[in-house]
Nucleic acid binder design. Structure first.
Length: 793
DNA sequence: GAGCACTGC
């Protein structure tokens, strides 16, 4: 009876009505959850579900007969046919939310589950958003193919070895027991034996294996530390003493230590951790340490790395043995798109919504390339979920990038409320630098911004570039930290194999090497071209750096370090900034110059400019530019104003200044002030003589001079190329005839960032070896003798 | 009238 009635009623419906029917069922389920229904109401619900199944079946039959089936939505070359894709949008991909008794779609889910292979975990769900109503809420969708699973490691053993906390134990005993639960523990003796046997050991250990915390302790227990103390050392905080036996420090710090103790005599073992990150400092350390171990046969060297690079490090250090330690990780399913996605932001948003509506609870992490993309994605997501009300569960959107003010960053660490889902929109900051609990899904569009440097033009640029396979693995792993995870890659398996490099190009091959060369020179390394780099930088970049250091008088004609060069090497700054400081001694303005150097080396994150308050922020900034003093002096004024207000946070807010950047500038400035003493430069202030300050700036930055052209652009003086004043500069409207700039960046145009006016005669006065009178003669000034660009006679 | 990924000394 009921069956016949259902068929009759279903025949009266179009297949398009299925959406409404489904919504209806879901709404009622939601409303009636836990409510006792009358017989009539229950019967009506049964009808609706039956009708739904009938209509659904009919529409699926139509679907299979139609020409629009999933494989047909793509042409022979695998390009997506948008029109067809929309037509098949009722098809879906794998699901794992089966198990809800009230779910009217359980049968179909079971079918899909069967189609897609077994799901790794099942969650019973009472939330209606866990049903598979995605395509009834949003029209577009993306098809994924499950490819592989990165296996979890070691988890069962771990659980069985958890310490027995029932007995009363001291904190120390507890700690000692917990140490034994780490994956590395069973390998302790074997590892110590290998260290004893070999001078260099490459250690492959996944995150969470305990290598960073345990190996130093094992070494200590084995007697590698004969005198004793524990501490750490980072740039602004040295917590070590003469009692220290074990020291944790950054690679950059170790490099600085080598400058004062080239043989590292006070160390018996060095461990270069996270070597696969291939920072500039790590690469230089490799070259130095490879040489050092020849002379210090008693020095042990441990290199810890991720799997992919281990062979390379081993080869570099004369086939050093590789010691493998398993990690602590949950399995992660990898999914690829069936076809390439043209717009990865849109694809990421669609995937977020797809996961939100169809997948079991767990937060989502999306990797985007920068602030602007994150803000865009944030807006679109808010727009698309607005007005859906109870149709979907709450979606909490959390943006995170390094420049986001700290108080806004805190949001990502707040626990997700029950029934809601968090989606974190992050830059690469989430790839290595911070870990967010509760992430179960990762969406990886496969891009990141990469800094590159053109040694010929001296121009830096930040370009969106496909990530490496190693990076992709790292991103995927972010979903399996607290439980089994899934990673949705917005590119095809074919793209992964064909278009992506194994590893990211190391920093040393895409950066300005002036500082590297200065460090190596001060270590007495003369032949840089033949230095044993694990991956050599472009020769042109090395030559460019040598040329600059020669121009700055840091090197003599023989390529040897000069007295000026030695003083410059004391400063942890780019050589032009160091030169500016050393030169400030002459103009008696070192106090102002170290402030400017600190502000410049913080980068361009001093001024805060939120989208909705750009006018206010720009007005606040213009206050510091009064009198068209130039960007360097403006930075000095910002710092001094802040200092006068007792480093007040409130002052920063009022002036649209980033607090964090200012604090960093203060730390750097304090450090520089300490270093002035080391190089015997007196701290002297000459605040009222702006020309003296500008001359000191020019002493460091004279290779960065440019001359105004009639059309408002500039020509750089020494290696002529067309450049422009960056619109954020206080001089962007002023257009002085001659300028000195801090850096060139290539974005939409070739821009000079941080610009100050210059008198051309200074160039000849300060750098007669670099500029001749003819370089600075200005034909325009002859017609307009009152102009600032009058050449010195 | 533009846009800045991330470390680090």
């Amino acid at each position: 009876m009921e069956e016949e009635e259902a068929i009759r009623r279903s025949n009266a419906l179009e297949k398009d009505d299925i959406e409404y029917l489904r919504d209806d069922i879901l709404d009622e389920q939601y409303l009636f959850e836990g409510v006792k229904l009358t017989d009539a109401e229950e019967r009506e619900m049964r009808y609706k579900k039956k009708i739904y199944e009938l209509v659904k079946k009919r529409s699926e039959e139509d679907e299979t007969q139609s020409e629009y089936r999933i494989p047909d939505a793509y042409d022979e070359e695998g390009h997506v046919n948008q029109e067809k894709r929309f037509a098949v949008s009722l098809q879906r991909y794998n699901l794992d939310s089966a198990g809800d008794k009230m779910n009217p779609f359980a049968e179909q889910e079971a079918w899909e589950e069967h189609q897609m292979g077994k799901a790794s975990l099942k969650y019973g769900s009472k939330n209606k958003n866990q049903s598979n109503d995605y395509e009834y809420v949003f029209e577009d969708k993306i098809d994924f193919i499950r490819d592989s699973v990165i296996d979890g490691e070691n988890l069962d053993e771990l659980h069985s070895e958890l310490p027995d906390k029932s007995k009363e134990k001291s904190a120390l005993e507890m700690l000692q027991e917990e140490r034994k639960t780490l994956p590395i523990y069973p390998y302790r003796d074997e590892l110590l034996q290998a260290v004893n046997e070999y001078q260099v050991l490459v250690i492959v250990g996944e995150t969470g294996s305990g290598k960073t915390t345990q190996i130093p302790q094992y070494l200590h227990e084995a007697g590698y530390t004969k005198q004793g103390k524990v501490g750490y050392s980072i740039r602004f905080e040295d917590c070590t003493s003469e009692k220290t036996i074990l020291k944790y420090m950054t690679d950059g710090m170790l490099l600085r230590e080598i400058l004062s103790e080239p043989n590292l005599e006070s160390y018996s073992v060095l461990m270069v951790d996270e070597a696969h990150e291939r920072t500039l400092s790590t690469d230089i350390l490799f070259g130095l340490l490879k040489d050092l171990i020849k002379f210090r046969s008693d020095l042990k060297l441990l290199i810890s790395s991720a799997t992919l690079d281990a062979e390379k490090f081993s080869d570099y250090f004369g086939s050093a043995p590789i010691f493998k330690i398993p990690g602590r990780r949950y399995p992660v399913e990898i999914h690829y798109t069936k076809a390439p996605e043209a717009d990865y932001i849109d694809a990421a948003i669609v995937t977020v919504l797809q996961i939100h509506v169809t997948q079991s609870p767990g937060d989502i992490l999306v990797f985007l390339t920068g602030q602007e993309e994150i803000e865009t994605a944030d807006e679109i997501l808010k727009h698309r979920t607005r007005g859906l009300g109870s149709k979907i569960a709450e979606l909490i959107i959390c943006p995170i990038y390094a420049n986001l003010p700290t108080e806004l960053q805190a949001k990502i660490f707040e626990p997700t409320p029950e029934g809601a889902r968090k989606v974190v929109l992050a830059t690469n900051i989430a790839e290595t630098s911070l870990t967010i609990d509760g992430i179960k899904y990762v969406i990886d569009p496969g891009f990141s911004k990469v800094k590159s440097y053109n040694p010929r033009t001296g121009m830096e640029s930040l370009l969106v570039h496909p990530i490496s396979k190693a990076s992709a693995m790292q991103r995927a792993g972010r979903s399996g930290r607290t439980g089994p995870g899934k990673c949705f890659r917005l590119y095809t398996l074919h793209n992964y194999h064909k278009d992506m490099d194994d590893n990211t190009v190391p920093e040393i091959q895409r950066t300005n090497l002036a500082n590297v060369v200065l460090i190596l020179k001060s270590l007495g390394i003369d032949d840089l071209v033949n230095f044993d780099f694990i991956d050599p930088p472009p020769e042109e970049a090395l030559l460019k750096a040598l040329e600059l250091l020669f121009a700055l008088s840091a090197l003599n004609k023989l390529g040897e370090l000069t007295k000026v060069g030695r003083r410059m090497a004391e400063f942890p700054l780019d050589p032009m900034l160091s030169k500016m400081i050393v030169a400030s001694d002459k103009d008696k303005c070192s106090d102002e110059i170290i402030t400017i150097a600190a502000m410049l080396s913080v980068g361009n994150s001093i001024f805060y400019r939120p989208k909705d308050k750009q006018v206010h922020a720009d007005n606040a900034r213009m206050n510091f530019h009064l009198g068209n003093v130039g960007d360097h002096i403006a930075l000095l004024r910002v710092y001094n104003s802040w200092r006068e207000c007792n480093y007040s946070t409130q002052w920063c807010y009022e002036n649209y200044i980033q607090v964090r950047s200012m604090k960093r500038a203060r730390d750097i400035r304090d450090q520089l002030e300490g270093l002035l003493e080391r190089v015997e430069i007196e701290v002297t202030s000459n605040l009222n003589d702006l020309d003296a300050i500008k001359k000191a700036i020019t002493s460091g930055f004279f290779p960065h001079s440019a001359k105004l052209q009639k059309n408002g652009s500039y020509w750089t003086v020494k290696h002529p190329q067309r450049v422009h004043i960056h619109p954020s500069s206080g001089l962007a409207q002023v257009l002085p005839r001659w300028v000195v700039y801090h850096e060139l960046v290539l974005t939409t145009k070739e821009y000079m960032r941080q610009v100050t006016e210059l008198k051309p005669e200074w160039l000849v006065e300060i750098a007669p070896h670099y500029y001749q009178l003819k370089d600075v003669e200005d034909p325009i000034s002859k017609k307009m003798p009152r102009g600032a660009g009058r050449a010195k006679e």
